[in-house]
Design a protein around this nucleic acid. Structure first.
Lengths: 138, 138
DNA sequence: GTTACTGCAAAGTCTTTGCATGCGG
DNA sequence: CCGCATGCAAAGACTTTGCAGTAAC
C-alpha cells in the first residue's frame, strides 16, 4: 500500500478538512466544502484525492448504510455509532475481550485482519424529538 | 414496520431462495437465479420483493463494503466475516459482554437499538492461495 | 371491481474512467 | 521535459420510480 504520486494541494486540503471535522463526510460533502474556496475544482478530483488518501492509508472509508461512502481521518481501530434517524456517525471505542474475536475467526477458519463494531440507534438529539425512525440500515 | 401488501409468488420465491442459501446474495444474484425459472421477471420486481421483505422484517440487508447491498435471511442478531479477497460473507456469532456495548452507548448519550460486528480478513480458501488482497473495505 | 404487483423503460444517485491540458519537480 | 494531477464530460454500477397492464383477492 505504498503512496504513489504526490501529496498535492487538493489532497492536502481534503486531508486537513477531514482531520478538522468529525462528521465523517461523504465525497459530496467534501466536494461542496472544497468548492467554496476553489470554485473550479472537479468532482473527480475529490474522488481521486479521497481514493488516493485511502490507498495510502491516510484515511479510512466507511460503508455502513446503503448511502454514499463516508470518510474517516482516524485510522486507528475504532467503532461507530450510527443514528438511524439523522444519519449521524459518531466514533466510539469498544474494548472487546481479545479472544472473543480471534476465537470466532479461528472457528470459521478465517485469517482475521481487523474487525469493527457498529452500534445503531438514536443519537442524543434524535431521541428527544420524533420517535419515528427514518432509516433502517441493518 | 407492518407488512402492507401480499406475500406474492415472487416475494415468496425470493424469500425461499434466500433461506436456502447462505451466500448472502446481491439483488443481481437473486435476479439471475429467479430469471432462470421465470425468464420474464423484471429487475424492479426483485428490488421490490427484497425491499418489501426487508421492510416487513423477514430479511435483513447488509452494506459492509462499497459494493452492492447483500441480503440475509437470518434476522436474529448476528455478525459477519467478510473475505477481503473474494468477498465471501459468512455468518458468525459473537457473544460480547452485554455492558461493553450498552455502556459505550450510554457514554455517548445514544439510545442503542442493535449492534453488529464485522470481521475482515481472508477466508479459508483465500488464505491458502494468493497472499495479495483484492479489496480493502475498511 | 379494486387493489396492488409486475414488466418495462427511464431516470436518479454515487462513483469511475478517458482524454486533453497544464502545473510542479 | 516529464509525470501525473486536474477539469470536464461521459460512462458505469446500482437502485428507484412512473406508468400501463394484469393478476389476485
Amino acid at each position: 500500500m505504498k503512496a504513489e504520486g504526490r501529496l498535492t494541494h487538493y489532497r492536502k486540503t481534503v486531508l486537513q478538512l477531514l482531520r478538522s471535522n468529525d462528521s465523517h463526510p461523504t465525497a459530496a460533502d467534501v466536494f461542496r466544502i472544497v468548492r467554496r474556496r476553489r470554485p473550479g475544482v472537479a468532482y473527480a478530483t475529490i474522488y481521486n484525492a479521497l481514493n488516493w488518501l485511502e490507498r495510502g492509508g491516510l484515511i479510512g472509508s466507511l460503508n455502513l448504510t446503503d448511502e454514499a461512502t463516508r470518510y474517516d481521518p482516524i485510522i486507528e481501530r475504532h467503532d461507530h455509532f450510527v443514528c438511524t434517524r439523522c444519519g449521524r456517525l459518531t466514533d466510539v471505542q469498544l474494548k472487546l475481550p481479545p479472544d472473543i474475536v480471534t476465537r470466532a475467526a479461528k472457528n470459521a477458519k478465517f485469517r482475521l485482519a481487523w474487525h469493527r463494531t457498529e452500534l445503531f440507534g438514536l443519537c442524543g438529539e434524535c431521541s428527544v424529538s420524533s420517535p419515528k425512525t427514518y432509516r433502517n440500515a441493518r
